[in-house]
Design a protein around this nucleic acid. Structure first.
Lengths: 215, 215, 215, 215
DNA sequence: TATGAATGAGGTTTCATTCAT
DNA sequence: AATGAATGAAACCTCATTCAT
């Protein structure tokens, strides 16, 4: 279970054998990204996206399945970037708990930096019909599986308690991250160090195995 | 500054001199309330509301200014109910800090109980064009003024520190409440006692006057 | 051919055996009259009429066939009033030409005084589907016949030339009146004495029999 | 102050850099023009326009801001055509009074020929909310300024009396034109040579400077 | 790779009108 | 003599989407 593999597969899929994306496609994605800073996805129209991108409206349907497809493309790119970044950071890390720390901190840092991405993932997609069958969600699931794998590693090495189901632990972590980021994202203030520290304390006091208490 | 006065004025305004509301109006409000449990306001159509209410679509526009008017009506009713309730609870309370406790706890309890109301107030209205000029917002402002009055009472009695602007304190409280409720409302879990306790600790350590430390 | 008979028949029809009209009916007609001062008929809504009249909307349909029925009622009343007035004025007049003068002057004076009536008759009714089959139009036709009768009287007495068809002469007069009133009515200025004098000159030089030149 | 400049600017604006207008746009404008021959603008529906044009209803909103936008487009085109025509005719004219004659006669001839345009300008637009802020009205104002410029020319050359404000004179001319055309336009008869001659007499006796009496 | 032209479905809103009381 | 409640039809308008080039 290697995050770089996932990343590579997904980069490949995006580019379908080509080295570079068509200009119109990029312009559209950028335009959508720009618009998402100010409005929620549903109230952005296809006409607006193409106008902002300065390309023809029907290009949206050439490059993406439909309007929502453009959003998924954006999400996908953010996700791939994020995972590439995490992949790089994890190279140094030793031990499951350390890796988890890197992962969580990276995740939160990314939400802090990319408010558009955060907003969509935290608020919008949940209501999208068909989201849970989408490619994007697949990618997120594989990210989840990756996290599970690290947790499992920790359980096997004795770093992490073995009396809670892996999926439980993963959900706690994910929930914790979301909880910590939600209000800052919605109200537009930055995510405080303290709240991240609190999250760490909470999580690691909870999941560390009793024999390995967190300092 | 009496909350009951505000309430009475606003009940009166709603019913414009009539004892009972037309059945269709109630059906529509109920229908909208029901639909808001599952979808956000913008993706609920007038046709859906009327179908759910089992009345003619045009009734929406007879009883409310427009689709959004129906939402404001709902909000207004929730708000009036809430303020009536608070008014009752405050009768026993002595001292500004105690009153504030009652107010905050009541506010959170209400958000906990009325998820639809909470969701709208925390997430939706902010984006509504013209919201800050609406009657509903007026009502909310009068609630804010009511809270400020209590804080002021506390400052004058020496219970609350006098070196922070009243409006600052009020905003801290409001922000604290929202922060505490945001994630539970979005993810649909109930608001924990602990988080409320935490909020109290934070707030009352912050605002109590140094001579009156909170035990 | 007596104008008073026409008037009486038409008053009778209005009141269908009753001495007074129901209050709501009057209120509605007044309200419509008021609104017509500012807007054209098509952009006045039934709701507005009843709101202005301070009665229930459905009263319109109790007292009149429909919204347009209310307008016809108004027109009818104006017309009957006008004809009563003319009837009174004609009592003194001797000779066909004198009667015509009274008639035309009366007509224009009435248009000058009742801008609402003038506007409707000059501008609106022409486009109304079914207008030319309406009761109101019947009344106007009987007014036309009355004028024709006077002209005929003049032809027989030798006052008016007999080499133009009666209907032609009547149309010339009617057209002349309308022409003189049109611009003042539309632009809202009062009808000048001069333009009426011009009309008289034009008409009476045109229609007077050569043996009876108009000084 | 050159009428051709105004014209060119406004042609350019219409076509926003394109050589030809989309077929649907033209069809819609033509259809509206056709319908205006029989009904007034307010009682023409968007559905009717598109049905007459044999295109989809929503094209109206693609090519024009809204239904009224289509009317403004029509007006604009009529106006530009008219001004182009006037521009051509004025090339020969010498002297301010001669130019004014050409202008007035051209104006009336155009009203005589384009009844739709005349009807809208004389009757409809006045009631339109926002008309006096519209682009179309801007164009008409620039036409007015053009006329004022000619009058001014005449004043400076001594052809036109200098004891009446320019705007007064212009308003007299405009009012005279409207007055002369009003009834013919409404009743659908053609504008007589005599009434135009009368207008000329009236205006030029009124405005010519005493030293330059109009023969 | 991109554009211009056009469409259909469905959204919000308005309004004359009817029915029961 | 009058009201309150409700309706259906149709108006205006928006928008995602497709097609031909």
């Amino acid at each position: 279970m290697d995050i770089n593999k996932i990343v590579n597969q997904n980069i490949a899929r995006n580019m379908n054998g080509r080295t570079s994306l068509p200009p119109g496609m990029i312009k559209l994605a950028d335009a959508l990204n720009e618009l998402l800073k100010k409005k929620d996805f549903n109230s952005i129209t296809a006409a607006q996206i193409s106008r902002t991108a300065q390309v023809n409206e029907s290009l949206i349907y050439r490059y993406f399945k439909d309007k929502r497809g453009a959003l998924h493309f954006l999400l996908h790119n953010y996700m791939v970037d994020f995972m590439q970044d995490i992949g790089r950071q994890l190279k140094q890390g030793k031990g499951a708990l350390n890796k988890l720390r890197v992962l969580i901190r990276g995740h939160i840092t990314m939400y802090d930096a990319n408010r558009v991405f955060a907003k969509i993932l935290l608020l919008e997609v949940r209501n999208f019909p068909g989201y849970f069958e989408s490619d994007t969600y697949e990618l997120i699931k594989s990210y989840g599986r990756f996290m599970t794998a690290i947790i499992n590693e920790g359980v096997e090495s004795g770093e992490i308690r073995n009396d809670i189901a892996l999926s439980r632990i993963r959900n706690m972590i994910m929930g914790g991250i979301e909880h910590a980021c939600m209000a800052p994202v919605i109200f537009g203030y930055s995510i405080s160090e303290e709240s991240v520290d609190d999250l760490f304390k909470l999580l690691f006091q909870g999941i560390a195995s009793p024999e390995n208490p967190v300092g």
